[in-house]
Amino acid sequence: MFSTAVTIKQGTIGVVTVFGKYKRIMLPGLNFKLPIIEQLYTRISIQNRSVELEFQAVTIDQANVYFKAMLLYSVMDQNEETIKNVAFKFIDDRNLMQALVRTIEGSIRAFVATKRQSDVLILRKDIVEHVKDQIDAILEGWGYHLQDLQLNDITFDEVIMKSMSQVVASSNLKAAAENEGQALLITKTKAAEAEGNAIKIAAEAERQASQLRGQGVALFREEVAKGMTVAAKEMQHANMDTSVILFTMWTEAIKHFSENSKGNVIFLDGSADSMQHTMKEMMSLNLLSDQQSNKK
């Protein structure tokens, strides 16, 4: 009775043979077999299995590439044909593992051999997809399926690694220099724009100031003319000579010169003839002004 009862653990499939020939499979749980005639040949795990790989490949430009990978695989399904392939394709698990690892390594080496060293690092995903496309059909014939392949580490010879670090450092320095140049250009451009705007504002302010100064001078002259007109009319009513106004203006001008001039000496012709000549000129100017006013 004990020889007829067989317990199959969860996650495994039992393979039964009769006189060395495949007979049937046993599913997880309690199973029975014919004593002496039927034999439990092996128990096959249908759980996922993992293995770590380390191998080397050579690129098309003769650079050595070192891979560290993790392989995840499992029995494809629980169908009877699949279990038969798993049970009888290889002598033992060691031979299966050797064939599986060498097949994957060969597929990766063939792919890397067509690529340049500088392209390998960015083709990690392409390498995995290439391996799956290449060996899925082969593993299916063995009854297995490749679940995942992770390339955990890709390295090169020390000399190549140093040169790659130098290239990266040079690229970073170049990018930093370009950024600094752009920042300096923007700063100088903004400074030039600010200076130009300041010049425009100063020019506009000077223009307005000049205009205001001109208007002030014009108003001053207008008020002076009005004052002189009123004074001249009052002096005419009083039967006084209007040339006195011009003489007063002349003396006021001399006083202004003396108060505001930076010099120490004012040269004046104070002779009687000169004073008489000046008075005649001022009177003639006053007369000319009166004539022009009468015409208007």
Rank of each mutant, 00 (worst) to 15 (best):
M26Y: 03
V51Y: 09
E80T: 13
L139F: 15
Q150Y: 07
T187W: 07
S170H: 03
V167S: 08
K89E: 08
I104E: 08
L53P: 02
E223S: 08
N197E: 15
E259R: 10
A253M: 11
H145A: 13
A253R: 08
S170C: 02
R94M: 13
A205W: 00
V18K: 11
F88C: 06
V58K: 14
M228H: 04
M97F: 10
M283C: 05
L173Y: 06
K226S: 09
I154C: 08
D119H: 06
D133R: 14
M282V: 01
L123P: 01
R24N: 08
S74Y: 11
M164E: 10
Q236M: 11
L268E: 12
F55R: 10
K115L: 04
M76D: 14
T12Y: 13
F2D: 05
Q166Y: 03
F32V: 10
L96H: 13
L121M: 07
F88T: 07
I108V: 15
K280G: 03
A231T: 09
A177G: 01
S243T: 15
V18C: 06
F220I: 00
V112E: 03
V167K: 11
I160M: 12
I245A: 01
K21Y: 01
A110H: 09
S165V: 03
V75H: 10
S74V: 05
I8H: 02
G20E: 07
K174C: 05
I245T: 03
F88K: 06
P28A: 04
L121H: 04
L30W: 02
G143V: 06
L288H: 05
T278I: 10
V86I: 08
D93T: 12
